[in-house]
Amino acid sequence: MNTTSATDSHATEHGLSTIGYVRIALILAAITGLEVSTYYVDFGRLFLPALLIMMVIKFVMVVSYFMHLKFDNKVFSWLFYTGLFLAVGVYCAALATFKFFG
């Protein structure tokens, strides 16, 4: 309602143009292609780190650009990343007690 008028103008001010969004989507598509290629081509020891890094890049790009987090107020980032890092932290710790990582 009233509170939103500020955010409306804010988003159009800082969001990307249509071309910009398409460009991001093309990059995402390219990375996905690279990911799928690991299924056909042997990457050797790079396999696991490469996949994880590509996953994180895609994740961050969607969050930052499509979800506007990069242009938005820091409070939103705080709320979201608190949950994300808490999840990564506790679940990795729990899996570690099952000797999952080694």
């Binding site: 939103t4 709320l79 949950g83 994300l84 506790v90």
Partner: peptide, 22 residues
């Protein structure tokens, strides 16, 4: 904060969803 209630609530909700899918 000058921010919208709904948007704050939505981001917080997405933060909690991380723990669900995690």
């Amino acid at each position: 904060t000058g921010l919208s209630n709904v948007k704050l609530g939505m981001w917080l909700f997405l933060g909690t969803e991380c723990l669900l899918f995690g």
